[in-house]
Design a protein around this nucleic acid. Sequence first.
RNA 1: UCCCCGAUAGCUCAAUGGUAGAGCAUGCGGCUGUUAACCGCAGGGUUGUAGGUUCGAGCCCUACUCGGGGAGCCA
Length: 433
Amino acid sequence: MTPIATIEKLGDYVGQQVTLRGWIHHKSSKGKLHFVQMRDGTGYVQCVAFKADVPDELFEALGHAGQESSLILTGLVKAEPRAPGGFEISVKGGEVLQKVEGFPITPKEHGPDFLLSQRHLWLRSKRQWAILRIRDAVITAIRRFYDERGFVCVDSPIFTPAACEGTSTLFEVDYFDDAKAYLTQSGQLYAEATAMAFGKVYCFGPTFRAEKSKTRRHLTEFWMLEPEMAYANLDDVMQHAEDLLCYVVKSVLERRQTELAVLERDLTKLQAIQAPFPRLTYDEAHAILEKEAPGQHVYGDDLGAPDETILSNKFDRPLLVHRYPYEVKAFYMKRDPADPTKALCVDVLGPEGVGEIIGGSQREEDLDVLLGRIREHKLPEEAFAWYLDLRRYGSVPHGGFGLGLERTVGWICGIEHVREASPFPRMMYRIYP
RNA sequence: UCCCCGAUAGCUCAAUGGUAGAGCAUGCGGCUGUUAACCGCAGGGUUGUAGGUUCGAGCCCUACUCGGGGAGCCA
């Protein structure tokens, strides 16, 4: 009985006969032999079928089977330096389950509009396979990181009754008896509640923003990791972000070498991701911008995308910019006692011009100050009654951040657009398939 | 919401205001070491939509639709 093998484990079967079950990724025929690049989801391998070695039926069927035909092949595993991947299958038998003609995504180049409309099929291509396997490794690394550190995963709801920060970027949905609900744009406020119950927590799930943004950094639905820690100050939050990113990158380097090679990722760029990360205050960042691009950044304003690009390009690892002007930041951020014009917040800008991948802060823990901020920002006070309770019953210093998963994966993969870092990306003008 | 760019074969693109083309993909045939193979043959078009200018529009003009890149906002 031939064992059923997967392509990623072929190294365990050299010299043995195995059965592989998968699809034709690419085929090149040369008279009396077929070269079949087979994929099975775990990897890609070349299978060589000589006319003399296989049943006539199979040889004929392979000759007429196009890209993405499903098939089962049995053959001998050989170490083969001539083959990509180092292994090759000498086919002895098998069958074509379904012969396919005209798979739309050919090995030649395609445009983004076409590929996105074929996303359900595009996922089968090598590059997408590599990216989404790296996404998986990032998710696994994140969960392992938190588990090892005693954090509890306590997820925030997707349906929310009101806005966290304004309503213009919220998706509204009907919620029974003429009521309205909104898709969450951040799990943070709920994570603060669970942090007061469990100490160190994180939530990790989809978030939704109806921002009319058409850029390579934006999706309307994306996954966000949001750790929240009781008794943490801004320094703790920054240290935590640094530890997390180092851990994740290291883990991907260990577990996804094949995939990084498919993407032709420059590994030295990832190997450089080591603590300590550079840190700049907002004031220091502004001073650099004044020198590099005089007049571009107005002191007091938030940093724009071009500003972030200039700053992050100066370093070979993520850059932490902290203590932004208090007035331009969210209502829940704590004022810096050492400089009341600043907030105890931090943005982490990825290297290689990828922009913001993390935004976090120490939270305001004082009931009266927080209430004042809610009023200043003209937010509906009733909606925040439960949130204010957190400052009424055992309030403590605490903080956390949000990490954009697709932006992080995009950075690690070295890809241009976050849409490739999501299995089925949702964008302003695209919700199919 | 604003700025820039684009739309021609299934895909990626070409075509001076004058007969709509190539490569890939597809089908058939050939080839024992291909890596996006190669060679031969074949099929494949309401040039995004509507209007206008012109003897004549894929090409020029107007509007619309769809898409791409960017700004703002954000992760």
